[in-house]
């Protein structure tokens, strides 16, 4: 039996005889768009500090609720001072990172004229690609964060999603992190002005705390993540950072669901 989509809802050959599909124009089979993400990555969190940006995303790719791949790199360095982090569909992320961004970077490099794409340019490009695809109703099922420096050499951090929506803030997180990490980050970075008071160490500490909280409460997360620190010197991107001081003590105090009766 043929299970391909163009046969869905068609009469079965073994009962009704051969069905003439010649009226279907598309001989290569029906065109299919992504209608849901399949292999997914969860949150990306990022925070500006005085002189740069810190970003983290764990190394898990889930297949539904199955923790399928545990060494996936969801943060990519793009040029000297720019990084892109992606959540959502992993194959779409790999298309963005390995096909599109790579080819954009190679073309820019070949120009060899002293110009280079920086964070706002990469961000604008990615947001346009995402919006272009949503206009074709063929989404790239991702939410992305782009970090680096803007034209005034100030820290830059912005997000774009599968709809092409753009958003910018001193503290950003995608996915579950938007619920759990942002309140933590906003305590130290409530507005743009407060960024100048945050040191690199404080920012790293806050991001690490967020990764821990996310691992505690996000069932699609894991305790190994990529950590990227952007500073004047460049990007320090480390993959496979382990969660520190993990403790499930607090679980005893959680009430409202589970086995306990009171």
């Amino acid at each position: 039996m043929n299970h391909t989509p163009e046969n869905w809802g068609r009469p079965r050959d073994d009962i009704y005889g051969f069905y003439d599909k010649s009226f279907l124009q598309n001989t290569g089979g029906a065109q299919q768009h992504t209608t849901r993400p399949v292999v997914t990555g969860t949150s990306v969190v990022a925070l500006k500090y005085n002189g740069g940006v810190v970003m983290a995303a764990d190394n898990l790719a889930s297949y539904g609720s199955l923790a399928r791949f545990t060494d996936i790199k969801r943060i990519k360095q793009v040029g000297d001072h720019t990084i892109v982090g992606a959540g959502g569909d992993i194959s779409d992320m790999q298309y963005l990172f390995d096909k599109l961004l790579e080819s954009v970077l190679i073309k820019e490099e070949y120009q060899n004229d002293g110009h280079a794409l920086r964070a706002p340019h990469i961000y604008s490009y990615l947001a346009r690609v995402l919006y272009n695809r949503r206009c074709k109703f063929n989404f790239l099922w991702n939410s992305i964060l782009v970090a680096g420096y803007d034209d005034e050499k100030k820290p830059f951090l912005a997000s774009a999603d599968l709809l092409g929506t753009r958003f910018s803030s001193p503290a950003l997180a995608s996915g579950y992190g938007a619920q759990l990490a942002i309140p933590i980050l906003r305590k130290i970075a409530p507005d743009e002005a407060s960024v100048t008071k945050i040191t690199k160490e404080q920012a790293i500490e806050a991001i690490k705390l967020c990764m821990k909280v996310l691992f505690y409460r996000d069932a699609r997360s894991m305790n190994k993540y990529s950590l990227a620190v952007i500073s004047e010197e460049g990007v320090d991107l480390t993959h496979g950072v382990a969660l520190e001081n993990e403790s499930w003590k607090f679980a005893e105090t959680v009430r409202g669901y589970g086995a306990q009766t009171v």
């Binding site: 004229d113 110009h115 706002p120 961000y123 604008s124 346009r128």
Partner: peptide, 12 residues
Amino acid sequence: RLIYARPIPVAR
């Protein structure tokens, strides 16, 4: 400007 939010470099 639309794609990259960047004024085009003169040489390009």
